[in-house]
């Protein structure tokens, strides 16, 4: 029983973190209709910003969100404006050109990070890094809990933005039907650029709250890219609620799989669920939540 509970708690906490990654990806996939293979690399850049601020200026990782988020937002807007958007008008045989562009961007980001920071492992240490709460026999890591709580807040904010504001409605409209949205007077170009920026800003926030839990090196990204699109498919493209549910399901599935089946197969569980959902539940959890 104790193990079940601890697995559940661990899975939920990790799942919260996955959820933020997933929301960023689901927005981008929903509106731009591309798989953003530079997702993890943007997370990496944000983590390096956070680390640099902490290491040289002593700024707390949680506070550095206020710097990493805007920086990444503008970086991503530039990427989207100058590298991704021009491809839409270009005639090409495969629609996947934008996806491959994100691969190129990812490679460049990793190599730039490597030439600036070398391949050394970095981590931050704060007063709360090792703080643990004990609920009976269940242990809860404080930084992981902060990441979880933060993801809930962020999700709520995103939900409000998408559901209640004009900007959010435009984004949702663009993600449902780009042509119709354009006809309704929404500039789809602006919306795609903004969405890529917004999605990346979410990852940036994730990077800053994640750094105290984990560590950092130039190749840290790809693992999380894969997690992010597993969540997106699980939750349904473009669905915020779906992404949260997807993140939590993935976190719990991985943890229980690792506890009761095999730790070595941990990363395969998510991929397997992902395939099953792709084939048997196209549209993901969005089919139940509708938003």
């Amino acid at each position: 029983m104790e193990m079940v509970l601890q697995s559940l708690v661990s899975g939920l906490l990790i799942g919260g973190l996955y959820a933020i990654l997933g929301i960023g990806m689901t927005l981008i996939m929903g509106v731009l209709k591309i798989i953003n293979l530079a997702h993890g690399q943007i997370l990496m850049v944000s983590m390096y910003i956070t680390w640099t601020l902490w290491y040289y200026l002593g700024i707390d990782p949680y506070l550095s969100i206020f710097i990493s988020v805007p920086v990444i937002f503008f970086l991503a807007e530039a990427i989207s404006k100058y590298l991704l958007n021009p491809l839409i008008e270009k005639e090409s045989i495969l629609p996947e050109n934008q996806v491959l562009m994100t691969v190129g961007i990812g490679m460049v980001l990793v190599e730039l990070a490597r030439s600036i920071f070398t391949s050394d492992y970095r981590s931050v240490r704060t007063a709360y890094s090792d703080k643990v709460w004990h609920l009976g026999k269940i242990s809860i890591s404080f930084p992981l809990f902060v990441a979880f709580a933060f993801s809930l807040v962020l999700t709520a904010a995103m939900f409000y933005l998408l559901m209640k504001t004009d900007l959010g409605r435009s984004i949702r409209a663009a993600s449902q039907d780009k042509i119709a949205a354009t006809l309704m007077g929404i500039s789809s170009e602006k919306i795609t650029i903004f969405t890529y920026g917004l999605g990346s800003a979410l990852i940036a926030a994730a990077g800053s709250v994640f750094l105290p839990v984990y560590y950092l090196y130039p190749d840290v990204g790809p693992l999380f890219t894969i997690k992010a699109f597993v969540i997106t498919i699980l939750g349904g493209m473009g669905s915020t609620i779906g992404a949260i549910a997807g993140g939590l399901v993935l976190g719990i599935a991985e943890t229980f799989g690792a506890t009761y089946i095999s730790q070595g197969y941990r990363d395969a569980f998510g991929l397997f669920i992902f395939l099953v959902v792709l084939v048997f539940l196209p549209g993901g959890l969005k089919r139940f939540t509708k938003v």
């Binding site: 990790i14 839990v213 984990y214 943890t255 730790q263 070595g264 941990r266 990363d267």
Partner: peptide, 17 residues
């Protein structure tokens, strides 16, 4: 004897076992 893949975020299930 139990293995894990490099870069694992959450070792708790393994450690509990």
């Amino acid at each position: 004897v139990q293995s894990y893949s490099e870069g694992t975020v959450d070792f708790k299930p393994l450690l509990m076992n």
